[in-house]
Amino acid sequence: MKKILLSMAFVAVLAGCASGVKLDEVQVEDRTGSSVANNSNSGAANVSSLNARDVAGLNGNKPGPAGVESVVYFDYDSFSIKSESQAMLEAHARFLREDRTRKAALEGHTDERGGREYNLGLGQKRSEAVRRALVALGVNDAQLEAVSYGKEKPASTGSDEAAFAKNRRAEIAYR
């Protein structure tokens, strides 16, 4: 038994320093003489020292036109603006035309079904539909930025058609 122990030849051990930072290359010889544990996938990037960042969000929209709705709803798998949203968009267009220094973000959203990135693309189609509608009503393109939240920020958290209908939307947010 002692002979086995002596022949084990633990060549290198982990550099387990006090900060517990990393596992280094380990080489151990087995008794047949060949190196058995020279794993090239050692040296994991240093988990223990991973620094968490805590970021703050940006809060607060500026007011838009008083008493005017700011959410455009869409049908399933649709990116066309319904006639019921026309009057509302005209009010926003008037507001933006009257003060060319005002800027608005158009935030597209989808319901929860499907992949996050593809939904980002679908939400982008909705926000760009609103952008085009406002530009057609005389707003400068430079006043607008069409972005997408995809399915990340549902207005309603349910998983039924009523919730889905509330979530298929584009919001007009003044910055």
Binding site: G16, C17, A18, L23, V26, V28, R31, T32, A37
Partner: peptide, 10 residues
């Protein structure tokens, strides 16, 4: 015997 390995860690 298929081999041995050792680690010394915190």
């Amino acid at each position: 015997d298929l081999g041995a390995v050792s680690f010394v860690v915190v």
